[in-house]
Simulated scan of single mutants.
Amino acid sequence: MANAGVKGRPIAPLVLSSQERAYLERQVRRHRVARSLSERCRAILRCAVGLPSKSVAAELGIHEHTVGKWRRRFLKDRCDGLLDEARPGRPRTIDDDQVAEVIERTLRTTPPDATHWSIRSMAADTGFSHTTIRRMWTAFGLQPHRSQTFKLSSDPLFVDKVRDIVGLYLSPPNRAVVLSVDEKSQIQALDREQPVLPMMPGVPERRTHSYVRHGTTTLFAALDVASGFVIGKCYKRHRALEFLKFLKEIDAQIPEGLAVHIVMDNYATHKTPKIKAWLARRPHYHVHFTPTSASWINQIERWFAELTRKQIRRGVHTSVRQLEADIRTFIELHNNNPKPFKWTKSADQILASVKRFCHKAQQTLCGEL
């Protein structure tokens, strides 16, 4: 009973100066600091409140001995004691000049038998191991096997058109409907020469690479930007005559009293005299043409991508009629629960991004010259 009041070995109080507290709090708030250092600083701050190591460990989800270790290190060396000590290891065998040479060769040259370097071809050319080349490329963010495409619009009214269309997306006018309109032409009804083997556990779906064509169809579609509702119709051809029929289809489904803003590209069938005359007789129709080579700004292209991914790419159709039936079914199911695409970037953000890309491309070209 004499030992009933013993609470364990007393610990030295941990008192922080204002500069130390500010440093620790700053490390905890920083996003780019190592997680281990942030955790140590948080533990010291909690210990400074007067909490025992066991309580701090339970609060932070770490071991009690870990809290005690960094507490002792801090009491001995203060803030410097929280930093990792240098660890012994194998000395470097590759100096900075050799690394720079590999990076320069990756960026400025190509192998004689290929358009780009691979890890193993660079390793064979330089004499380093492929793991060493991998580490170098990873450190500098180099991926020679990857390639991306781009196309800049040469439209002289690019800025005005972007501001106009993005303004419609982000702030549509009152008592108006904004429709994104385009056609997806030459959709092929493809059948496989042999039956598709269904997916099984551990085995993906399998199909022959060869196919049989059964004709094509063209889908004209209009996406209501606000609701996500789609008006779509298939035609055998994609002339101005079919486009005029589709405009009449749109007109029949739009409630009276609403202005109609149509966003579409500069395809020739959209600008024939008959189309212009039909639109001129309906002053509540307003056409907004996208910049040339800027299909990304037309939201119906995003919906076409979903149609391709979900229905067309892996579909098997023995006739155009079957293909068109599947497309109509896809539209009906989509319209049962339509969801609009969320446009997030303003016109200023888009134009600033294009400006940065052009500036970077110009610097690259000047460097090559």
Rank of each mutant, 00 (worst) to 15 (best):
M1T: 09
A2W: 02
V6Q: 07
P10M: 04
I11C: 13
S17N: 11
A22Y: 05
E25D: 14
A43N: 04
R46E: 15
A48N: 15
G50F: 05
P52R: 03
P52S: 02
G61Y: 07
K69M: 04
R71W: 04
L82F: 11
L82C: 11
R87D: 01
T93D: 02
I94V: 14
Q98P: 00
T110R: 13
S118M: 02
G127L: 12
L142G: 05
L142H: 07
Q143P: 00
H145W: 03
S147A: 12
Q148L: 13
L152F: 09
S154D: 15
V162Y: 05
R175H: 15
A176K: 07
S180N: 04
E183C: 01
L190Y: 07
E193H: 05
P201S: 03
R206G: 00
H209K: 14
Y211A: 11
V225I: 13
A226W: 05
G228N: 07
F229Y: 13
K233C: 06
C234A: 09
H238N: 09
R239P: 01
K248L: 09
K248M: 09
D251L: 12
D265F: 00
T269Q: 10
T272I: 05
L279M: 11
H284K: 11
P291V: 07
T292P: 06
W303D: 00
Q311G: 00
R314D: 14
V316W: 02
L323C: 03
E332G: 00
K342I: 11
K345Q: 10
S346R: 04
Q349I: 04
G367I: 05
